[in-house]
């Protein structure tokens, strides 16, 4: 199972133009603010309009501009964890996690959904939060709940938008190791946007450096370190 994405999207003067193929289980998209990381993740999920979008996810065509195929977001089997977590504030944590189980193919029977959601929370060591509401959670707790919600439906590709950037230093280290452990169990590809070289290191990620909407360098962290192509890549690789 793998992914491939050739995407061109325009927003005002900004143009995103990338052509990427999976090279490792976890891919880290790194780049300065406004370089197009979030737009790229949303394009993969079918959440933004693209001029060109040829996207394959898990062997299935999600989008093919030439053939005029463009699966809607809900049919792409994507797990998405946005930077703001996007938790449903009117639902408890366990109801948040159970949400997607109503829409799997076939849908999980109603009586099994909460059990499955509890299980997903347990895997991230946060089942103690199950009956609380998102408004009372800390950033690290929100992050784990959002991750559990994305993983419970067993997506073909997981997209994480700066998953650790909003957390304080201590929480970040803890959630980073939880994330690394959970992603290696997950067994399907993940794409993570980040500013922090330690994220890429902990997740053993293949690096894709994006600047101004274009890929300027790809490779392992060691390769980027040894031969950074841009000042940003150099600054990133050395932390």
């Amino acid at each position: 199972m793998s992914w491939h994405a050739r995407v061109q999207a325009r927003a005002g003067a900004f143009v995103l133009d990338v052509d990427l193929t999976q090279a490792a289980p976890v891919t880290a998209i790194v780049g300065p603010n406004g370089s197009g990381k979030t737009t790229l993740l949303r394009a993969l999920a079918g959440l933004v309009e693209c001029e060109v979008a040829d996207v394959r996810i898990g062997g299935a065509i999600a989008s093919d501009s030439a053939a005029r195929v463009n699966l809607p977001t809900e049919a792409r089997r994507i797990g998405y964890v946005p930077q703001s977590y996007g938790l449903f504030t009117h639902l408890t944590v366990v109801e948040n996690v159970a949400f997607g189980l109503a829409y799997t193919d076939p849908p999980v029977p109603r009586r099994d959904r909460l059990d499955r959601a509890w299980g997903a929370l347990r895997e991230l060591d946060c089942d103690d939060l199950a009956e609380r509401f998102p408004a009372g959670l800390s950033g690290g707790e929100c992050q784990r709940v959002a991750l559990a919600r994305a993983l419970v439906v067993e997506p073909e590709l997981l997209l994480l938008d700066e998953p650790l950037s909003a957390l304080d230093a201590v929480t970040r280290v803890r959630v980073r190791s939880i994330l690394a452990a959970r992603l290696s169990d997950f067994g399907r590809p993940a794409i993570v946007s980040t500013h922090d070289v330690r994220d890429a290191e902990a997740l053993d990620a293949h690096i894709v450096v994006i600047e101004d909407g274009r890929v300027v360098q790809t490779g392992s962290l060691a390769e980027v370190r040894a031969d950074p192509r841009t000042p940003f890549a150099a600054a990133f690789a050395t932390g």
């Binding site: 999920a45 959440l47 809607p72 792409r76 994507i78 998405y80 949400f99 994305a150 439906v153």
Partner: peptide, 9 residues
């Protein structure tokens, strides 16, 4: 957006 990725139309 998350609701859409989770399969909701």
């Amino acid at each position: 957006r998350v609701a859409r990725t989770l399969g909701a139309k």
